[in-house]
Amino acid sequence: MKLNLRVWRQQNTDAEGAMATYEVDGISPDMSFLEMLDTLNEDLILRGEEPVAFDHDCREGICGACSLVINGDAHGPERTTTCQLHMRSFRDGDTIDVEPWRASAFPVVKDLVVDRSAFDRIIQAGGYISAPTGSAPEAHATPVPKPDADSAFEHAECIGCGACVAACPNGSAMLFTSAKVNHLNVLPQGAPERETRVLDMVAAMDDEGFGGCTLTGECATACPKGIPLPSIAAMNREWLRATRKARR
């Protein structure tokens, strides 16, 4: 396959960026999208140019590092992570636009690499259960109804890639935040911090400069792990409940 790539190039956070055009040839349909970029980068290095910077690590769809907007879609046309997208999803001669996540809370570091530390700070605000090592009771002391355990798991699957923010026209982090709130708040172990957790995490999310939610549903469509849109409504319910009940 031969492809035309238009890739966002930006030297660093403060520099101006622009789309640059590259032609890549000899692409196998069995390559992953990132392997296609590897091929481009090998060429660029040998030509004495700087390779395209992009985040990636596990390349099996679980670490959440890869983060490309491909033809306007976060993670590209399939519902998966960029690393699990294969070139057979494209056709010979296609022009492909590759851009970084766009959100003011995710400043560009270089080329296609963005800074997602805002997500870490949302978790730091309350996305945990305070259970210091050694203080745990016997695991079977508190049974958890299977539907609750399954619901917690479904939300805990979030890989923190940020596709939800990238896809949202408002750059909102509601789906990310709600995934963690719902994971922990549905469990009995998470109950003691239920109110403070949601209030603090929503406040942290707002402080990071993410936009508000207008329920466009773009986030859930882009999410490679299928975190469902009703997760947001569930967090709103938790938040409203907390504003009524929180003891401060």
């Binding site: 945990y128 259960i129 259970a131 090592t133 050694g134 203080s135 745990a136 009771p137 016997e138 695991a139 079977h140 508190t142 049974p143 958890v144 109804p145 299977k146 355990a149 399954d150 917690a152 798991f153 805990a156 994971h183 922990l184 469990l187 172990q189 998470g190």
Partner: peptide, 22 residues
């Protein structure tokens, strides 16, 4: 055995049976 206790306390969503046990 302590690891499982610790992780459950942290909210790790291990698979469970219908009775709510691991």
């Amino acid at each position: 055995v302590e690891i499982i206790d610790q992780c459950v306390a942290q909210g790790v969503p291990f698979a469970r049976e219908y009775g709510g046990l691991l």
